[in-house]
């Protein structure tokens, strides 16, 4: 495992342990995808509102702790602040708030919204003839929501080549409404669709930088809880849980071995 991605995961475990809040498996699913975005997009952590920055929207807002850990890794704030996750006066809620957290472009949490707002952002940039790009990360569970597909239809119809959608294909909905063939579905909707290993940073970066004639979708095949076999094997049980001291030590050891 990439060392930076491993340290980001450690910070997630520390914050979850300290705060009592969870969503660890879903964040472990998307770390490489988030890092691939931040190693592709233009940004300046010292100037989060830099007018020439690219935009990223975390549509699956419940992966906020992973997002915060990545933002801290890329210098938007100090990693120590992650320990305040979910606390009453913290900036770092269990879903991201654009008015509080530097680097957050949209307050999300209700599933399906972020990708549609990202479509609007991409359209805005195209109207402005801007070279800036928009990236968004959606979940496969989130994609049970009808608005995801409304947004994808509009983006494909407008041929928004400045928009890249990452799809976290971690099988989280296999117990309710699975989406078994996302690559074929996005292709059928008219998207320029690539399927890669969702934990292969180089492959993700290559997919994100590959030119596209229309909206791009990168289906990242991922493991919910990647890095900790116990989490991966029990992703439903650990969806919102925070580890106790023994579990924390166990997960840190598992992560070390990853």
């Amino acid at each position: 495992m990439n060392l930076a991605c491993k340290e980001i995961r450690r910070n997630i475990l520390r914050a979850s342990r300290a705060s009592g809040h969870g969503h660890i498996p879903t964040t472990f699913s998307v770390i490489e995808m988030l890092c691939a975005v931040y190693e592709t997009m233009k940004f300046d952590p010292a100037r989060p509102d830099w007018p020439e920055r690219d935009l990223f929207v975390l549509s699956k807002g419940h992966a906020a702790l992973g997002f915060y850990s990545v933002l801290a890794h890329y210098g938007f704030f100090k990693p120590e602040e992650l320990l305040t996750y979910g606390a009453f006066q913290s900036r770092l809620g269990c879903h991201p708030d654009r008015l509080k957290v530097p680097g957050v472009e949209l307050s999300t949490g209700s599933l399906g919204h972020g990708v549609a707002v990202a479509v609007g952002m991409a359209l805005a940039l195209r109207i402005q003839n801007s070279p800036r790009r928009v990236f968004t990360l959606i979940g496969d569970g989130e994609s049970n929501e009808g608005m995801v597909w409304e947004a994808v239809m509009v983006a494909a119809n407008l041929r928004l080549a400045n928009l890249a959608i990452l799809y976290d294909n971690n099988g989280s909905q296999r117990r309710s409404l699975p989406i078994p063939n996302p690559t074929e579905r996005f292709k059928a909707f008219g998207c320029d669709t690539l399927e890669v290993d969702g934990h292969d940073l180089a492959a993700l970066k290559a997919a994100l930088t590959k030119p596209a004639a229309t909206v791009k979708v990168v289906v990242g095949n991922a493991i919910k809880g990647c890095g900790c076999p116990t989490l991966a094997a029990n992703m439903f049980e650990w969806h919102r849980k925070s580890p106790n001291p023994e579990q924390f030590e166990q997960f840190m050891k598992e992560l070390e071995a990853a």
Binding site: E105, L106, G112, H113, A116, V117, A118, V119, G120, M121, A122, L123, A124, L125, R126, I127, Q128, G146, M147, E150, A151, M153, V154, N157, L158
Partner: peptide, 26 residues
């Protein structure tokens, strides 16, 4: 032509897309 879109019958997406347009000053 770049400032008028008949986007289709998808009201929820239309509102959220409008939010995205607002975010960039429109």
């Amino acid at each position: 032509p770049t400032r008028c879109y008949n986007m289709g019958i998808c009201e929820n997406a239309l509102v959220s897309i409008a939010a995205g347009l607002c975010s960039q000053g429109f």
